[in-house]
Computed example of a mutant assay.
Amino acid sequence: MTTVNSTVCETMLTYSKSVELRLSLLINWFIMLPSFPIIGYSFFYCWTRRLFHKNTQLQVIIHLGGLLIHCFGRFSLHTLDLFNYFHPHTDGCDILPNFYRCLILRFFYNSGQALISMTPLSIILERLIAVGYNRAYENCSINYGVLLGALQIALAIAYLTTRYIHAAFRPASFTFFYCQTLVSSTISTNETYIPLLLIIVSHIVSILIFRCLEIKNKKLREVVDINLSTRYTLDQGRRSFIALKCFISYNCLMVSLITAGLMFLHLVSSHFSKPNYMAIIEMTHAIPLYGMIVCIAVYWKLRTIDGEQRRNITMALRGQAVHTDLYFQMFEKQLN
Results as ranks from 00 to 15, higher is better:
residue 66 G to K: 09
residue 315 M to A: 04
residue 7 T to S: 13
residue 237 G to E: 09
residue 105 L to W: 06
residue 269 S to I: 04
residue 232 Y to N: 12
residue 182 L to Q: 13
residue 227 N to W: 04
residue 220 L to I: 12
residue 175 T to E: 02
residue 195 P to L: 08
residue 89 H to N: 03
residue 5 N to Q: 07
residue 259 T to G: 10
residue 201 V to G: 03
residue 78 H to E: 14
residue 88 P to S: 02
residue 237 G to D: 13
residue 128 L to K: 10
residue 87 H to T: 07
residue 139 N to Y: 09
residue 207 I to H: 00
residue 318 R to H: 14
residue 169 F to Q: 01
residue 332 E to C: 11
residue 244 L to K: 05
residue 178 Y to M: 02
residue 6 S to T: 01
residue 240 S to M: 03
residue 266 H to M: 07
residue 273 S to M: 06
residue 94 D to G: 02
residue 224 V to L: 15
residue 175 T to H: 03
residue 137 Y to D: 13
residue 98 N to W: 01
residue 59 Q to I: 15
residue 251 N to C: 07
residue 83 F to E: 05
residue 33 L to Y: 07
residue 18 S to R: 03
residue 91 D to R: 01
residue 191 E to N: 15
residue 33 L to R: 03
residue 93 C to Y: 05
residue 11 T to H: 04
residue 326 L to I: 12
residue 275 P to C: 06
residue 312 N to L: 11
residue 182 L to V: 13
residue 301 K to L: 06
residue 119 T to G: 06
residue 147 L to I: 15
residue 56 T to F: 12
residue 225 D to I: 09
residue 246 C to W: 14
residue 175 T to R: 02
residue 237 G to K: 02
residue 196 L to R: 09
residue 89 H to G: 04
residue 314 T to Q: 14
residue 201 V to I: 13
residue 174 F to P: 01
residue 147 L to T: 07
residue 199 I to Q: 14
residue 272 F to S: 05
residue 50 R to V: 10
residue 50 R to Y: 07
residue 124 I to V: 15
residue 110 N to A: 13
residue 246 C to T: 15
residue 318 R to Y: 13
residue 72 F to Y: 10
residue 156 A to P: 02
residue 189 T to I: 15
residue 285 H to D: 10
residue 169 F to M: 03
residue 250 Y to P: 06
residue 156 A to M: 12
residue 147 L to H: 04
residue 212 C to R: 12
residue 242 I to E: 14
residue 80 L to W: 06
residue 238 R to K: 12
residue 32 M to L: 01
residue 249 S to Q: 11
residue 55 N to K: 00
residue 140 C to I: 04
residue 35 S to Q: 03
residue 12 M to D: 03
residue 205 V to G: 08
residue 226 I to H: 03
residue 333 K to Y: 02
residue 329 Q to C: 08
residue 145 G to E: 05
residue 132 G to A: 08
residue 219 K to S: 14
residue 318 R to F: 12
residue 177 F to W: 01
residue 209 I to A: 11
residue 100 Y to A: 08
residue 19 V to H: 12
residue 278 M to S: 09
residue 172 A to V: 03
residue 12 M to Q: 15
residue 261 G to F: 07
residue 319 G to Q: 08
residue 100 Y to G: 11
residue 331 F to T: 06
residue 132 G to H: 07
residue 102 C to Y: 00
residue 305 I to K: 06
residue 29 W to K: 01
residue 146 V to D: 08
residue 323 H to R: 12
residue 193 Y to H: 13
residue 282 E to A: 08
residue 221 R to C: 11
residue 101 R to G: 14
residue 126 E to N: 09
residue 41 Y to C: 04
residue 214 E to C: 04
residue 30 F to E: 00
residue 198 L to D: 08
residue 180 Q to P: 00
residue 173 S to Y: 06
residue 24 S to P: 00
residue 231 R to K: 14
residue 275 P to Q: 05
